[in-house]
Every structure is written in structure tokens, then in C-alpha cells.
């Protein structure tokens, strides 16, 4: 019986330790971004650009595809319910609000965590186990500045951009259902979509997505940089980064929704 308590306690302490080291990494990263330019030490523009292309541009198609179909599904599900009330036209705001507030930011972050976060953890993990991180340190190049900062900035800029696009594609998905099968009419659908949408729906979603981006970047960089034990370790790190990122995205989403919408109820 006592072993259960020991195990729980150990897990709790391990969690606290990992969490503080992720915060420490975040502090280092932000310090480099804020103080770095004054000391003439910035992450190279080229590597930031590379990371933005990898994290953002190359995720466009998959994010667009997923959000388009999410929009279609939401429209179909809500139409099924709203039809019984004779309020089919409210499918439009239903889709636009649920996409911009929740599904756009969350699905985009999940896709990016799976596609980009795992790649970051695998790349940094491989660099760690093949002495490349140590080589950087020996060359007096800070791995946080050289490796973490470009990935952090790439994700921080691109995830909100992707989210904006996901919002658009989701609404388009709803529009397709509304116009083709629900006979709402293009003009009326668009009008209803945006009549009920307020700015807060959009910006709260974007703030969330920026936080998700920070979480993905920090978790996957930290997990990658603390990889141990060869090829097996790299595999473990890759899986771990995705699992923890997913959990953190959902937890953060819950907290932020509470802050933005539930605190005023």
C-alpha cells in the first residue's frame, strides 16, 4: 500500500522537476530574444526563416484539410439538432464561433505538435546523443540561442498564422454544407456567420494558439535536449514530446477558456 504513495510522490516530484526545467528553458529563450540583439548575438535570420518554413508553410495543406472537414462535420452535426427547432440558419454562427474559439486553435496546435514538435524532439535528441550539442558548447555557441530560439520564434509566429487560416477553412467547410444541402444561401450564410461573431472570439483563439506554440516549442526542445541513451532514447523522446504536448495543449485550452469566457459567467 505504501508503495503506491511512494510511486505517486515520486511521479509528482518528477513532474515538478521537469516543469521547472521547462520554465527555466523558456526564461533562457526569452532572455536571448530580448537581450541578445543588444549584445550583438542573435539567432541567424536564415535559421529562423528555415524554421518558419518548416513549421508554417509546410503545415498549410494538412491544417487546411483538417479544418475544412472539421467545419463540415460541425455543420452537419448542428444542422441535425437545429432542424428540430426549425433554426437551421443558426448553423452558420454555430460553426464560425466554435471554430474560431476552440477547434481552429486546438486542432492546429495538435497537428503542429504531431508534425513539428516530434521532428524538433527527434532532431535535437539525435544531436544530443551524437555529441553535437556538446560540440556546440565546446565551440562556445549556446545551444539555446543557436537551436531553441529559431524553433521557438518559428512556431510562435507561424502557429497563430496557421490558426487564422484554419478558422477561414473551417468556416468555408460549414459554408459548403449550408449552401449545398441546407439551402441557406451564400449571402445569408456569410451574413449570419459574421453577425454573431465578435472580435473576442477571434483574438482569444489567437492568444490561445500563441500559448500552444510556446508550449510545443518548449516541451519538444526540452525533451530533445535531455535525451539519453542512443537510438532508443531518441525514439522515446519523440513519443514523449508529442504525448506531453497534447496533454499540455488540452490543459492550457481548459485554463484559457476558463479565463476568457467562464470567469464572466
Amino acid at each position: 500500500m505504501s508503495s503506491i504513495f511512494f510511486a505517486t510522490g515520486k511521479m509528482y516530484l518528477g513532474f515538478i522537476r521537469e516543469f521547472t526545467s521547462i520554465l527555466a528553458l523558456l526564461y533562457d529563450t526569452v532572455a536571448w530574444i530580448v537581450v541578445g540583439p543588444f549584445r550583438g548575438k542573435v539567432a541567424s535570420r536564415q535559421s529562423i526563416f528555415q524554421q518558419m518554413v518548416f513549421a508554417g508553410v509546410q503545415s498549410v495543406i494538412i491544417v487546411a484539410f483538417i479544418s475544412l472537414f472539421t467545419g463540415i462535420v460541425i455543420a452537419m452535426q448542428s444542422a441535425y439538432q437545429l432542424k428540430q427547432l426549425g433554426a437551421v440558419v443558426y448553423v452558420a454562427p454555430m460553426v464560425s464561433i466554435s471554430i474560431t474559439r476552440e477547434l481552429g486553435p486546438v486542432f492546429t496546435a495538435l497537428v503542429v505538435a504531431g508534425r513539428v514538435g516530434s521532428a524538433i524532439a527527434a532532431e535535437l535528441g539525435t544531436m544530443k546523443v551524437s555529441e553535437q550539442i556538446e560540440a556546440l558548447e565546446t565551440l562556445a555557441i549556446d545551444p539555446v540561442r543557436f537551436l531553441v530560439v529559431p524553433r521557438f520564434l518559428g512556431l510562435l509566429v507561424m502557429v497563430p498564422c496557421l490558426t487564422l487560416m484554419a478558422n477561414f477553412m473551417g468556416i468555408v467547410g460549414g459554408l459548403i454544407v449550408g449552401v449545398t444541402t441546407l439551402d441557406i444561401g451564400f449571402h445569408r450564410y456569410v451574413l449570419f456567420s459574421f453577425d454573431f461573431l465578435v472580435w473576442k472570439d477571434i483574438w482569444s483563439g489567437l492568444v490561445k494558439s500563441a500559448l500552444f506554440a510556446i508550449a510545443i516549442a518548449m516541451i519538444s526542445c526540452h525533451v530533445g535536449l535531455s535525451t539519453k541513451g542512443g537510438a532508443e532514447g531518441v525514439g522515446k523522446s519523440t513519443t514523449l514530446s508529442v504525448v506531453i504536448s497534447f496533454i499540455m495543449i488540452i490543459v492550457l485550452d481548459c485554463i484559457m477558456t476558463g479565463v476568457f469566457f467562464f470567469s464572466q459567467v
Partner: peptide, 30 residues
């Protein structure tokens, strides 16, 4: 560290960079 050099057992070359970029990295950085 800028005044010392280290050759690693596993070479520890950065595998996303070419041979030339590997050698020029410390010069470009410092």
C-alpha cells in the same frame, strides 16, 4: 572556449550542414 578546439570521438559534425559550413561555423559565429 574560443581559444581551444576539440575533436570528438564520433566527429560530432552537424549533419544538417555541409562540410564547409561545419568548418566555418565558429568563424561565422565569433
Amino acid at each position: 572556449r574560443k581559444k581551444i578546439g576539440m575533436s570528438f570521438q564520433s566527429s560530432a559534425l552537424f549533419d544538417s550542414m555541409t562540410v564547409g559550413e561545419n568548418v566555418s561555423l565558429p568563424l561565422r559565429e565569433h
